[in-house]
Design a protein around this nucleic acid. Structure first.
Length: 114
DNA sequence: TTCGTGACAGACC
DNA sequence: AGGTCTGCCACGA
């Protein structure tokens, strides 16, 4: 009850993830911070758990952890799909980790900014 | 309604 | 430098 925020928070996450340009990746913490939930990076990851259920395809494969590691690849249709999608975006993935993550990193707070 | 969990991250030892 | 634990907020049972 009293779900003032409710799934709205999830929607915010999806919105930000969808704004991530191709060839770019972001981190859970960055999204969480952008939403003002800095530290609640888990919520972002949790939200992604339902991302696949969203009609507008959510590029969850562009969302990785602080280390650039594809922690959630296992949640995709196939574990290899996440890496495959990233490579398709010209993002090199090696050892389940995004290569040049620092350069590929897309900060919503900085890009969307404000 | 309460307890436990979770695709993380930062702090502490 | 590295491993361990808690904190964050929301959802499921």
């Amino acid at each position: 009850m009293q779900k003032v925020y409710g799934d709205d928070f999830f929607e915010q996450v999806y919105q930000v993830v969808r704004l991530v340009p191709k060839g770019r990746v972001t981190s859970y913490g960055a999204i969480a911070a952008y939403l003002g939930a800095k530290g609640s990076s888990r919520l972002v990851g949790y939200a992604m758990n339902a991302a696949h259920a969203q009609k507008p395809k959510v590029p969850a494969h562009r969302v990785v952890n602080r280390n650039g590691q594809l922690t959630g690849k296992h949640h995709f249709a196939t574990p290899s799909q996440m890496q495959e999608l990233l490579e398709k975006e010209k993002v090199k993935v090696e050892n389940d980790r995004v290569v040049d993550f620092a350069k590929r990193f897309w900060d919503p707070m900085k890009e969307l900014a404000l």
